[in-house]
Write a protein that binds this DNA or RNA. Structure first.
Length: 281
DNA sequence: ATGTCATTTTGTAAATGA
């Protein structure tokens, strides 16, 4: 089973990149963040092309900011459209989490608040939100939390740690909140697989940062004992950050082996059959 | 310090957010 997470920075703008990416990478479960669409607008643009590709969809949006989604072709059951106990910001519940059972795993697509700066009210909100995220974890063993955490777990996850001292994404309280999540038994499977490598998932659009690999690793897949024990491969799909009209984030992809009993989950019909290639001689 | 991109609007330039 292939699981991926991608902050697309506007699903509508990214549509011409997102659909070909689904066809190329063929993920079974996809966590999206920053769709920036209402549920109605997402459905209008995506219901048909996703159904054609065999995906069920749960989208939670507000329209202007935020917005998260789960796409799955290995089942999508018991959908929760918000984080239980999530704090409000400016008296509003923001679209930052959606959870469902997919392929036997309890998967949450998260868009953790940015925080802006440690002295901003948004930073306190971020820490409250992370506490709610931890409190909402059910059985850690079958849990996957994937998305834009807006936290770089260590200085190895920042292109220039000196530049980010006292900035959001790297402060001890944020890293402590992440460690508390991991303390439940959730594993940062990309770092576990690439312990000594420079692996970033986000590069600012400005100043040629991607070209110089001046990025951060803030998009994480946190996996409980069952999925973490079945990881066959993990990688960051840098190709999706290249070329025309990319998001500023790259997808993170995690491949899981079959379950111990050999069950690969529900058999899903393949997407629309491509036209037959003409014979050549 | 602040080179981009995406959003929205007492709207087509400026604000807000990341």
């Amino acid at each position: 089973m292939r699981l991926a997470t991608w902050n697309v920075n506007s699903a509508l703008v990214r549509l011409p990149r997102l659909l070909p990416w689904l066809d190329e990478r063929a993920p079974d479960v996809v966590c999206l963040q920053e769709t920036k669409l209402s549920d109605e607008a997402f459905a209008e643009a995506f219901d048909a092309p996703l159904k054609e590709r065999g995906y069920e969809v749960a989208h939670v949006g507000e329209g202007r900011w935020n917005g998260v989604a789960l796409l799955s072709r290995v089942g999508l059951a018991d959908v929760e459209r918000a984080l239980p106990g999530a704090p409000l910001f400016a008296d509003a519940l923001e679209a930052r989490a959606v959870t469902a059972t997919c392929g036997g795993l309890r998967v949450t697509s998260v868009y953790v608040p940015n925080g802006r700066s440690p002295d901003d009210p948004h930073y306190a909100y971020k820490l409250e939100w992370l506490a709610a995220l931890r409190a909402a974890v059910g059985d850690p063993a079958t849990t996957v939390i994937a998305g834009d955490m807006n936290i770089a777990p260590t200085d190895d996850d920042v292109w220039d740690p000196a530049l980010f001292v006292d900035s959001t994404h790297v402060t001890p309280p944020e890293r402590d909140a992440l460690a508390a999540l991991q303390g439940l038994g959730l594993h940062d499977v990309v770092r576990d697989r690439w312990p000594a490598d420079r692996v970033f998932s986000y590069w600012d659009y400005r100043a040629g940062r991607f070209h110089q690999d001046m990025g951060m690793r803030i998009d994480l897949v946190l996996a409980g004992a069952d999925p973490a024990g079945r990881v066959a491969a993990t990688w960051i799909d840098r190709k999706a950050r290249k070329g025309k009209g990319p998001s500023d984030h790259a997808p993170v992809i995690v491949d899981l082996d079959t379950a111990p009993d050999g069950d690969i989950g529900p058999v899903v019909p393949p997407p629309s059959t491509p036209a037959k290639l003409p014979h050549r001689r």
